[in-house]
Structure formats: structure tokens, C-alpha cells
Design a protein around this nucleic acid. Structure first.
Lengths: 194, 194
DNA sequence: TCTAATTTTCACGAATTACTGAAATTGCCG
DNA sequence: CGGCAATTTCAGTAATTCGTGAAAATTAGA
């Protein structure tokens, strides 16, 4: 490996974390390298900097492209492919969220839906279905929320993050106003609003 | 494997997804089985229902406990350990978020912090550090937000989810009020509020 | 302390996944 | 249509991860 120390530390870390992120070492390293490179890199430069085989680079770039985390950039009068990562970190976050949802939650959601359509054949199955329905309900709430907020502009998203839990102050105010207007109801019913 | 069809389908799915979730097949299957079981199960029952070796069950239960996703339950006058999953799906979500953050985010955050303290030795390193600073900033915003909302009661959390992007209507109203009060500023500066 | 039930550890083989070099393919230029 | 540069595919091997059975450890009674 042929890199300045700080960059090498970053690249090696991404390689090690790769397994925890569900990608492999090489893919992690290449992503990290592209991310910190000021200019797009071609495959042979990656080979040289990381000290891995050409074919490995080719396959790993292909996987990064499948994740939309590596983008091909062509140069005039150069037949080689150069690659970068998306440069806006918020865009990277969105991409990552989208791809992980696609791979990690959507399949489960559809399996749950299928199973829940079946007729339980025993008491055990009836109970299991009830549990699955709980899980399904939660996942659906989460994905509905996600589909909703992912459409926000980045500025709004950042604003929401910064607000954090303080958002609930606003909700509390709103609840108070509503229950005044309606002639006060039981507080737990307030979650039905909007 | 010795299970009613609906439960088997669920268990097998969790086994297959295991690799994508960063756990292995057996761990996924055991979790799924415990999740849908009306009563806690002991190791031998799991062996019998899933058709895997006793030692594999032992190691997998240990891993599930490390994730706080399997809880030991003792019965009077019975030396065996019985296991369940937490029964509230919201609690499971919290546990999952916490554990994944610990394993997948925190290490990166601390590596980034370390590297950012170093003095860059070249222009390439200077640029790389700037990129890492962007990544660090985003991760820190996200974890701050997470630390904030994870403290909310479940009802409030569910309320927020249900609101989804409509929350921005409230923000817009608030922005409008504030900019009126301050004598109208440029809209993009509004993200600085609160 | 001994015994028997239960759980855990661990070395090994099985299965899976990652990486490589060689060969095949692509695509551009003359 | 060659010829050349670049990329991709793929079969084989290396490395890692998974699952097992046998043996060791633990623990509660006798």
C-alpha cells in the first residue's frame, strides 16, 4: 500500500469496518480512497495505491457502482474510466439509506406481508402471526416516515436534525392548544392527531 | 427443522437475511424462533425445532445476548436456561439502533477524530482531512440527533413518525413568524434558527 | 465429595466468501 | 479487418467464517 499516513489510516479503517457494514475489505478501501481523492482515479491508480490485483479492483468498482457510491467520470482523449464518490455527504447518506433499505428491509417487509395473508393452522401459528403483525406494523411505520423525510431538501433535513428532541416542545404546544379547543380529552388520545 | 409452515417460513427468512444484517444464519433463525414463541424456550427445544447442534445453539444464544436481543428467563425448580426476546417491538428497535451504532458508527467516529487531530504533511493529506471533516460533521449531527430522540417516550416517538415530513409545515410556520418578527431575512438563513 | 444434568469451550472439517492471474472481451484507431 | 489499450470474466486457490462432536467446566442436589 502506497499512501500518505493519514490517508492510509482512513483507508485501512474502512477496510476493517467493511465486514461490519456488509461490504468486503477491498470495497471499503476503494470507497475510502475515492472519497478522499481530490481527483477521480482510474483502476490502475487504485491498484498501485492499494496494492491489490487489477481484477479485484474491477469487481469491487462494479459493486460500488451497484451501490451508487462510485461514479464513472470520463476524460476527453482518454479511454480509461475514472471514478469518484458523490461529493456531497448528505447525498451519500441518502444513497446509503436507500440502498440499505432496499437490501435489508424491503425483502423482510414483503415476506411478512405474504405470511400474514395465510390462514393460521394452529394456535402456535396464530400467536406467531400476531407477533409478525406487530413487527410488520413497526417496519411499515418506519418506512413510511423514511419515504416522507427523504424527499425533504437537505436544508430542511439538517434543520430537523438540529432540532432533535426539542421538536416535541412544539408538539406539546400543539396538543395543548388542540385539547383546549376540543374541551380537553384524555392525553394519550393525543397521539391520534393530525 | 420441525416447525409449522408459517413459522418455518419466517425463521428461514431471518436465516437468509442474517448475512445481510451482519449476523449469521443460525443466530437469525434462533432470534426469529424466540420472537414468535409464546413461551421462553430452552436450548434443547431450539435444537429440536431448528435441527442444529447443541453447541451451535449455545454460541448463538451467547451472541444474541451480547446484542441484548435474547433474554434469559429462569424457572423455579428448573436448572435449564430459557430465553425470550424483548416483547415490545419498539424496545427491540431501540436495542437494535443502539447496538448497531455502537458497532458500526462509534468506531469510525473515533478514528475520524484521531486523524483530524494530526498535522497534514502534504497537500493531499490536507484535502483528505477536509473531506474527513465533512464526514465527521455529518456523523456527529446524526448521532447527536439520535441521542436526543432515543430518550423520547415511545408515544412521542410514534407521534413524530406519524407526522413525518408534515413536521416541516410547522417549521415553515415558525420560520415565517420569526422572519416577520425580525423584519424578514433571506430565506436560506432560516436554517440557522433555534 | 460424588453424581448427574446442563452448558460451554475448542479443535477440526465443511461451507462460504474473497482474491488472483490468465484468458477472453470490448472498443477505438488506423 | 488487425492491432492495441483497457476492462471484464472466470476457474482455481487462499482466507475466513460457520457448524459440529467430543471433552471440559459448571452447578445443584444426594
Amino acid at each position: 500500500m502506497n499512501l500518505p499516513p493519514l490517508i492510509q489510516a482512513f483507508v485501512l479503517h474502512f477496510g476493517e469496518m467493511g465486514s461490519r457494514w456488509g461490504i468486503n475489505r477491498t470495497v471499503g478501501q476503494i470507497y475510502a480512497l475515492l472519497y478522499v481523492s481530490p481527483e477521480p482515479l482510474c483502476a490502475d491508480e487504485i491498484v498501485e495505491k492499494l496494492g491489490i490485483s487489477r481484477s479485484n479492483v474491477s469487481m469491487s468498482l462494479r459493486e460500488l457502482q451497484a451501490w451508487n457510491l462510485a461514479l464513472p467520470r470520463h476524460r476527453p482523449d482518454d479511454r480509461r474510466d475514472f471514478f469518484t464518490t458523490p461529493d456531497d455527504v448528505w447525498q451519500i447518506l441518502r444513497t446509503l439509506a436507500e440502498e440499505r433499505k432496499k437490501r435489508e428491509v424491503d425483502p423482510t417487509l414483503s415476506v411478512l406481508r405474504e405470511i400474514l395473508l395465510e390462514e393460521p393452522g394452529s394456535e402456535a401459528e396464530r400467536h406467531a402471526q400476531a407477533r409478525m403483525a406487530q413487527m410488520h406494523g413497526l417496519i411499515e411505520q418506519l418506512t413510511t416516515w423514511y419515504d416522507d423525510v427523504k424527499r425533504l431538501e437537505t436544508d430542511r433535513l439538517a434543520q430537523l436534525l438540529r432540532l432533535g428532541a426539542r421538536i416535541t416542545r412544539i408538539l406539546e404546544t400543539k396538543d395543548a392548544l388542540l385539547s383546549l379547543g376540543r374541551g380537553r380529552r384524555k392525553a394519550s388520545a393525543a397521539t391520534e392527531h393530525e
